[in-house]
Amino acid sequence: MPRSRHVPVLLFGAVLTGLLVYWAGLLYRGMWHGETAPEVGSLARYLLGIGLLLAALGAVAHLNYRLAFRRWMLRPSGGWQYGTWLLTLAWVLFELLQLRTDHVPEFIDENLLMTAVLLAVIAAYGYVADALRARRAQVELQQQKTEAELTALKARVNPHFLFNALNTIYNEAQRADNEPVADLIQQLAGIMRFTLQESTQPLTSIEHEFSFLEKYLALQRARLPERATLRVSTRLDWDGQPATIAPLLLIPFIENAYQYGISFTHPSYIDLDVTVENRRLRLHVANSRPPAALLPGHGTGIATARQRLALMYAGRHELRIDQTADSFTVTLTLDL
């Protein structure tokens, strides 16, 4: 641990020790009866009981957060399930308190109050823990973004040189009346321009994102040969309503299908359907899994996309990935 981090740790330990000693002194004097000092063992057992009670409360609160809060409260329609769970937990807590007081009627109001306090602490722990988790994830995402930008700056070739080179090749293709090659160069230039410019923005329009995907699909169509054993079906549909999306969010799922779903020696297929209606996006990608697609490293891009969705669209998306020995399917719904 660096020296600069020792100071706050030692300060925390000193304050904690002083506070515990101060409280123990108050309890010790408060238990003084006449000239007889209280039994130290009784005080130790009393303090140990308080510590165990707090530890049990912390454990219940943490389990509630991990098993119930994250399972239901982070989903759009999970509020009712989480509310039902809290009511059940309140019932159990109340019955435990009743058992502790031997079900004496005079303690019912006190047990109800304690149940409400304990339940409030447990519920509040979930919100605080989730806020801290989201904060840590945001900091981690920012660090990863900074590292990626630095890496890109180190490895990136001057974009002006690349665009000038593409323009030169494009002009040569037109001069030779080779329109298919000229069109492909235009598609590649559009992909590079989007990657270098739009990807630096937090959001881009659906129109720009679809234009980028169409250029990518056009290059893939030109790359793939026409074979009876190869079937590729693609559809991009947008209702025209203004909407924005994180740039390059969908391409990992599509690129994954082309990278691992195409085979020139085995029957293979890709089915892609992307629709945006009423600012709700639905992506469905299904592809075959030829034997060559089962190599290690499969799906790295999807893991990154899953993390971006969790950080940028928490509670606003549903991602389902199904895979078998010969197929891979991705279904994504996203509220824009």
Results as ranks from 00 to 15, higher is better:
211 S>F: 02
212 F>N: 08
190 G>R: 14
96 L>F: 11
42 S>K: 13
230 L>D: 04
23 W>M: 13
286 A>E: 10
46 Y>W: 14
221 R>N: 15
277 E>I: 05
255 E>L: 14
102 D>Q: 15
12 F>D: 06
187 Q>V: 12
79 G>C: 11
226 E>H: 09
207 E>Q: 14
238 W>P: 04
277 E>K: 13
119 L>G: 07
210 F>N: 04
160 H>A: 15
325 A>S: 10
249 L>F: 14
84 T>C: 13
148 A>L: 15
297 G>C: 13
168 T>W: 07
267 P>H: 13
299 G>A: 09
285 V>I: 14
166 L>K: 00
83 G>R: 13
169 I>R: 05
203 L>E: 11
93 L>N: 13
245 I>S: 04
283 L>K: 07
75 R>K: 05
125 Y>P: 00
165 A>Q: 10
108 I>W: 13
213 L>S: 01
22 Y>E: 15
28 Y>C: 05
310 A>R: 03
332 L>M: 14
156 R>Y: 05
178 N>R: 15
116 A>F: 05
94 F>Y: 12
86 L>E: 08
58 G>A: 15
134 A>D: 05
72 W>P: 00
294 L>E: 01
7 V>H: 10
216 Y>M: 03
4 S>P: 01
186 Q>I: 08
105 P>Q: 14
49 G>S: 09
38 P>I: 09
69 F>I: 03
212 F>E: 04
110 E>L: 14
145 K>H: 12
277 E>H: 14
171 N>E: 10
284 H>G: 03
303 A>Y: 09
291 P>V: 12
197 Q>I: 15
294 L>A: 04
136 R>G: 14
35 E>R: 10
99 L>N: 03
170 Y>H: 05
63 L>M: 10
32 W>L: 14
221 R>L: 11
24 A>G: 11
158 N>S: 13
159 P>L: 11
93 L>R: 05
276 V>Q: 09
292 A>G: 03
239 D>S: 05
288 S>W: 02
126 G>M: 00
134 A>L: 09
3 R>N: 12
309 L>R: 01
313 Y>V: 02
89 L>D: 00
43 L>T: 00
284 H>T: 05
327 S>M: 10
123 A>L: 07
271 D>I: 07
43 L>S: 00
105 P>R: 14
291 P>D: 13
305 A>G: 06
131 A>Q: 06
48 L>V: 02
187 Q>L: 11
256 N>Y: 09
15 V>R: 07
183 D>M: 13
132 L>C: 06
162 L>H: 02
324 T>V: 11
189 A>L: 08
209 E>A: 12
281 L>M: 12
238 W>V: 01
62 H>M: 11
135 R>D: 07
271 D>S: 12
161 F>V: 08
36 T>M: 08
85 W>C: 06
1 M>V: 05
243 A>M: 04
74 L>E: 01
85 W>G: 04
205 S>H: 03
28 Y>E: 04
303 A>W: 04
101 T>G: 08
46 Y>S: 00
312 M>W: 08
161 F>L: 15
100 R>C: 06
330 V>D: 04
207 E>Y: 08
212 F>Y: 15
53 L>P: 01
104 V>W: 07
247 P>G: 10
252 P>L: 12
170 Y>T: 12
7 V>P: 01
240 G>Y: 02
258 Y>M: 15
174 Q>L: 15
6 H>E: 12
220 Q>V: 05
207 E>R: 12
189 A>G: 11
